[in-house]
Amino acid sequence: MATYRLKTPISEAQIRKLEVNDVVYLSGTVVTARDQAHRRAIELLQKGKALPVNLEGLAVFHCGPVMKKENDSWVAVAAGPTTSTRMEMVEDEFIKGSKVRVVIGKGGMGKRTSAAMVKYGAVYCAFTGGAAVLAAKAIKHVKGVEWLDLGMPEALWILEVDEFGPLVVAIDSCGRNLFLDVAKKVEANRQRIYRKLGFQP
């Protein structure tokens, strides 16, 4: 387990070095996107159109933040991760089209995303669910917002972050997936628990 301090834009070579269980602190630009933003982005990308922000080498954050406006500029009040599995069906297309290098969320992602990460060179990092103030404090500046018509949680918030973390690498670009590993162990433990409680298998 190693600790890395990364700055965006992140190169493919930097990403390929990361392994599951490594800890990352990220500085630079992070853009939030949830289900609706993913869907809209893919529609644009598939038509060959550009996104309102170029995500190449940046990080996308599965997050629906609480923002407030102070003297005409936005301030992040709370910005923890949301459940990533909701984006599982679209994340591969999103990575392919946007060339994003880091996906940040909670709860992990599945085989489809893992495969895209191997192919295009990206990692999935888990940020502690609910640790919203810690995340908000790492946000130094809200650089902009797009697609606010989707509502505050669903909009694309473009954030300048400093030492955002600890992020645990949970899917690396070699196809290892910490969440799927844990799931396998849990399945084995299920049988142990059943036996302990005296259930018929």
């Binding site: 609480v66 709370a78 949301t82 502690t128 609910g130 919203a132 103030v133 404090k137």
Partner: peptide, 22 residues
């Protein structure tokens, strides 16, 4: 994760901000 949770709780109290964005 637990360390991050405890750090986050302390920060929330200090800044009187909601613990979680949800």
């Amino acid at each position: 994760q637990l360390k991050t949770i405890l750090d986050n709780l302390a920060l929330a109290e200090k800044h009187e901000a909601p613990i979680c964005q949800d």
